[in-house]
Design a protein around this nucleic acid. Structure first.
Lengths: 336, 336
DNA sequence: CTGTTAGCGCTTTCAT
DNA sequence: ATGAAAGCGCTAACAG
């Protein structure tokens, strides 16, 4: 920075200010000078050292987010949304993936907290006591997403997975289906998956339909292949089944393709519904009925909320806990 | 730290060393003293400030990686591979996505370089002059992936997209197909896509097959929907086409599903091949012939190579430029 | 609007 | 094995 300053013929401080024009309180006389400085930086290949900057200013410029998985999921869209929201604010996203395990989440949070993030975004409302404790003592804003926890840590951006799945069951019921099954994962690793199963079970009971038709297959996230295996098991175990709700579009798609291989007409022999509105559900044949969630919107809302909370924290205030409800929508398609 | 030192009756330096026992070169006289120091830290609620530590030691503990996209791509698997490779080394991955644009990549690299990463992993071999300049002056190890650039910046972990696509064309030729088309994106934004098209074109020429059957459709990455639209256009424009190579499995799948809607038998009326071996290609019906790449392996290899380079750099040495060749494999399946 | 002066909390380096 | 001194590169605070 001193070299650049000398090269332009100003002080280090002026360069520093030119590089931090974002804070409207600070300004350089002429935009022309700023441009000269920026040009000199580019010419000399100089880039601001955030490490020193963060050390000096006591602000890391980081936000941390933990998502279950990067692959084949809506969570990468949520990550995109967060990135889009914080874009231009000077905040950088530190992303971690927990592989659907709270233990991993705790490890990740511990590692990320060492980087002194200014805020944290978590997926779901189920976290280890250790995670709770660390977040508590970190004293930074926290947003939980993709869920509506009964006892949120602080802020929430999400929807009720149980309610959304129940709505899907009601849709199937309205279409005339009466023997409705559910395909999901075995463990309670994936709490959103467990919530969806609960929503299914409660709706079945409320409608007075025959219960118990639940296939639990493999560790979440359930793959297409596992969906295919599950539906075979399902049809053999309960031959009267006429519709199935899958925990996600991935398993729904796998099930659909398996039905085609088996020669089971969809939706005539069996109707299939998914969750998440993945592109594959819109593109396949027949198209798959599913629950559409604005995944990117969750990220955007979480990012914006977190930024407001961080801004408040900077002024010494504290943003009261907020809950942003994300709407879901039943996409009725060819598979039902 | 000074307070703790005073409390224990030693110097700051001794406390610092006690807290950094990891480096075997430094040791405290007695383990007893170390324990007293650790106890004092706990008593006084003192925790090491990683921010200052990072700043002082000139080691950020970061590596930066830029991938084109997080969604529906193999690149998220590569990111996983990188994470797995650096796990436990104390290195954190800073991930950015360029959305397949070199301008975005340049912006990202600039932003990430501010965090003083100890190494950088890039996707592809095509970067803006600005990116080259910044990386050059940063003086940190660089690994390019998913490609074999003619003039790599430094290290490379990848394969030839052109060669892999050519192999796919030869596979189709061996199967008896003679009117082979290509579906890809319009722009040259996605250089891997352009390489695949080039591999197709060269193979067609080498085999003496009728050329010109290329549909360019939309901005990369081409979606399932665009694949569906493209194949309709293709069949109308060149009714004699009997096989098509798609730039990725996404468009191949979209094309396959559209064929089912149109009543065009696959592979009898038209054969379809993709690229990337996405899960959908293994699960759909018929299954899709494709090129399998060990996406996670690319990330793992890139991460390991980068770590070796970083270790070398720390000792003042410089790892000679390496190229790791990642094999590809033609997965012959039902769609051809 | 711009410059000067002090550090931020730690580690490096060099003594001892 | 331990300590003292000297910064790392930047920004806060204040002065001009």
């Amino acid at each position: 920075m001193a070299d650049v300053a000398a090269h332009v013929g100003v002080s280090k401080m002026t360069v520093s200010r030119a590089l931090n024009r974002s804070g409207s309180s600070e300004r350089i006389t002429s935009e022309a000078l700023r441009q000269r400085i920026l040009l000199a930086c580019a010419d000399m290949g100089y880039v601001l050292d955030q490490t020193a900057r963060m050390f000096s200013s006591k602000r890391s410029g980081f936000i941390a987010a933990v998502i279950p998985s990067l692959n084949n999921s809506n969570f990468s869209e949520t990550a995109h949304g967060i990135t889009a929201a914080v874009e231009g604010s000077g905040l950088q996203l530190l992303l971690g993936y927990s592989d659907y395990r709270v233990e991993n989440e705790e490890r990740l949070v511990a590692a990320m907290l060492m980087r002194r993030p200014e805020g944290v975004i978590l997926t779901g409302g189920n976290h280890s006591p250790g995670t709770h404790a660390m977040l508590e003592s970190a004293g930074i804003p926290v947003v939980e997403t993709w869920d509506l926890p009964a006892h949120p840590i602080e802020h929430t951006v999400g929807f009720s997975n149980a309610q959304a799945t129940a709505a899907l069951v009601h849709h199937l019921h309205a279409k005339g289906y009466r023997h409705i099954a559910f395909i999901g994962g075995t463990s309670n690793r994936d709490t959103r998956g467990a919530d969806r199963r609960r929503g299914y079970t409660e709706a079945i009971k409320a409608l007075g339909l025959p219960a118990g038709r639940v296939i639990s297959f493999g560790q979440p996230p359930i793959s297409m292949t596992q969906g295919a295996q599950a539906i075979v098991q399902l049809v053999h175990q309960w031959p009267d089944v006429d519709a199935v709700v899958c925990v996600s579009d991935l398993s729904a798609f796998g099930a659909l393709m398996e039905c085609q291989r088996q020669g089971w007409a969809v939706p005539e022999r069996i109707a299939i519904a998914g969750f998440g509105d993945f592109e594959v559900s819109r593109s396949c044949h027949p198209t798959i009925t599913t629950v559409a969630i604005d995944s990117t919107g969750i990220g955007r809302a979480a990012g914006e909320l977190l930024m407001r909370a961080i801004d408040e924290a900077r002024t010494g205030a504290k943003l009261p806990a907020e809950t942003v409800l994300i709407p879901f929508q039943i996409m009725a398609r060819g598979s039902t």
